[in-house]
Design a protein around this nucleic acid. Structure first.
Length: 260
DNA sequence: CCCTATGTTCCCAA
DNA sequence: CTTGGGAACATAGG
């Protein structure tokens, strides 16, 4: 469920709440997440985001890697009595508890020794995303531009909702072949991605079903969506009816009149 | 029962 | 090798 803006919000809130804090206990309540681990006594020394993945650095050199996938969410609980259904792990601190809640159990969690170790760096749309990079990587790609945008090995963090919105802002059909984009179109695409993701972060994410931030609050960006989930409604830019098609198994919303 | 869902991975076919 | 389609993972909701 969370894409780049939502994970960025969680990261910033976690920095406020658990940066420098010491772990008292960690309970893995779903064996699918991995074997029990003992992190008692470890201190959180860093928090970062890579695409949709959260990296929690510990003082013993280990890093906790968390990917929320479709329905995972993190919740900061100060009332220790409250435990929501589908809670999959709890990390207890002296001043509260961090819970992972995940009905569909798709979330991934692992402990890694490597401090940084990445081989193929995907571009981050908020850091180093440029027309030049879209050009270099996309010039040879014949896949639809929407598939290019959502391919995490090429660009880290854009998911289904924001891909639809970015393509609408850039006036590009989701089916356009990536290699066919002109320099002007690539520039508009890069600008649109930066603008939409930044605004979504400023709006604290998109709550169309169950996204909540670390404190259980909804986002605001759902009120800014132009095409996602709006099949049959008029395009805010040109008035034509929004269409929906299926691309790579995902619902894809676009305006057939002004996205070409 | 049908379909849908903010994600990723794997298998198979063209 | 590249691309696309479909299924799988597991659960809730319309």
């Amino acid at each position: 469920m969370p894409e780049l803006p939502e994970v960025e919000i969680l990261k910033r809130q976690l920095i406020q709440v658990i940066s420098g804090a010491k772990i008292l206990k960690i309970s893995i309540l779903d064996e699918k997440l991995g074997p029990p681990i003992n992190l008692a006594g470890r201190t959180i020394i860093s928090l970062s985001r890579k695409g949709k993945e959260l990296h929690i650095g510990l003082d013993d050199g280990n890093t906790l890697l968390l990917h929320l996938r479709m329905t995972g969410r993190l919740l900061w609980q100060e009332d220790s009595a409250l435990q929501l259904p589908h809670t999959r792990f709890s990390i207890t601190f002296s001043h509260g508890r961090l819970d992972l809640i995940d009905p569909r159990r798709f979330a991934h969690f692992k402990v890694e020794k490597e401090p940084i170790g990445s081989h193929t760096e995907a571009m981050d749309p908020l850091n180093g995303f440029s027309v030049r990079l879209i050009g270099e990587t996309g010039r040879k790609k014949k896949l639809p531009i929407k598939s290019f945008l959502t391919n995490q090995r090429l660009i880290a963090g854009i998911g289904n909702i924001y891909a639809c919105e970015i393509l609408h802002a850039a006036k590009l059909s989701p089916l356009r072949k990536t290699c066919d984009l002109s320099p002007r179109e690539r520039a508009l695409l890069a600008d649109s991605a930066t603008a939409i993701l930044s605004k979504a972060i400023a709006c604290r994410g998109t709550t169309v079903s169950d996204w909540r931030d670390l404190f259980g609050q909804k986002g605001e960006y759902q009120d800014c969506l132009k095409v996602y989930g709006r099949k049959g409604e008029p395009c805010p830019r040109c008035g034509a009816a929004i269409e929906r098609l299926k691309l790579a198994g995902r619902g894809t919303y676009f305006c057939p009149a002004c996205q070409i």
